[in-house]
């Protein structure tokens, strides 16, 4: 099986700052679920930002191959159209832009890239209804402006709903569990589990082991001071829960 994502000796920083990522190596195949854990300041959010192509970050060394192609030259919108999806830690509120209108524009941009016909309003609505059942999302939420006035849980559910609609090859969930109560966490995790697919890789970036109780990863990696200092299966996460990050960080 070919590798979906290959990260080789990746060094990256916020433009003008010091390196935050200091040599990441990671290979992800389709169908796999990876968890990347680590303490605050380890570089977890920088990694997701760099993979999604967020402006303001720069790669200083190393490279990232996605589906065998260099990622660096692609803008964030091109990455998304080619199947990379970032579920935001803090989904952005966009007043005046209707959620459905936004999502249809996004879906049609992605479909166009895949060589599929664009959906008209009626076809889109049908597709939406089919996916709504996946998550506990009320249709009312879709009629509002993007994320405006959504609760923390609604915002995260909306992210996973977008993921369900866009059907990415690589989904990066950035601290998707943060700010969720246990019911919302369960709903979001159920949605993600239903989106597990042999053709899709999922990368969960999280501070806590809690999320992994609901979405069971195939691999767990520990990120500390910009490097992966340990990799293993899900038992590594349980070990971390007991002993904390400190001993790993000092080992690195």
């Amino acid at each position: 099986m070919t590798n979906l994502l290959e990260i080789h000796d990746l060094h990256a920083r916020i433009v003008g700052g010091r390196d935050i990522l200091k040599g990441i190596n990671l290979t992800i195949k389709a169908g796999e679920v990876h968890a990347i854990m680590g303490p605050n300041g380890a570089g977890k959010s920088t990694l997701s930002s760099v993979l999604a192509g967020k402006p303001g970050y720069e790669v200083t060394l190393g490279h990232v191959l996605y589906q065998g192609h260099e990622l660096a030259s692609l803008g964030p919108d091109e990455r998304a159209r080619q199947g990379i999806f970032l579920a935001f830690q803090y989904p952005v509120e966009i007043s005046g832009v209707n959620n459905m209108y936004f999502l249809r524009a996004a879906l049609n941009a992605v479909r166009k890239q895949r060589g599929e016909a664009e959906l008209d309003a009626a076809q889109f609505l049908k597709a939406v209804k089919a996916k709504l059942s996946l998550l506990d999302i009320s249709e009312d939420l879709l009629k509002r402006a993007v994320n405006v006035g959504f609760s923390g849980g609604e915002k995260k559910r909306n992210e996973i709903f977008q993921m369900a609609m866009l059907e990415p090859a690589l989904a990066i969930l950035d601290e998707t569990d943060s700010g969720l109560d246990i019911d919302a966490l369960r709903a979001v995790a159920n949605g993600v589990n239903r989106l597990r697919d042999p053709g899709r890789a999922i990368v969960m970036i999280t501070h806590y082991q809690r999320l992994l109780d609901y979405i069971e990863p195939d691999f767990v990696h520990v990120l500390s001071d910009g490097k992966i200092v340990a990799s293993g299966d899900k038992t590594l996460a349980m070990d971390l829960e007991e002993r904390g990050y400190a001993h790993l960080a000092s080992a690195a």
């Binding site: 999604a52 192509g53 967020k54 402006p55 803008g75 964030p76 919108d77 990455r79 998304a80 159209r81 999806f85 970032l86 935001f88 989904p91 952005v92 966009i94 007043s95 005046g96 832009v97 936004f102 999502l103 524009a105 996004a106 941009a109 992605v110 890239q113 402006a145 993007v146 977008q162 866009l166």
Partner: peptide, 21 residues
Amino acid sequence: FYLQARGIDAATARRMLIGGF
């Protein structure tokens, strides 16, 4: 960036935000 991260090109994203404003 949020709109672009969903596949919407920069020019369309700008127009969406201005229209939304």
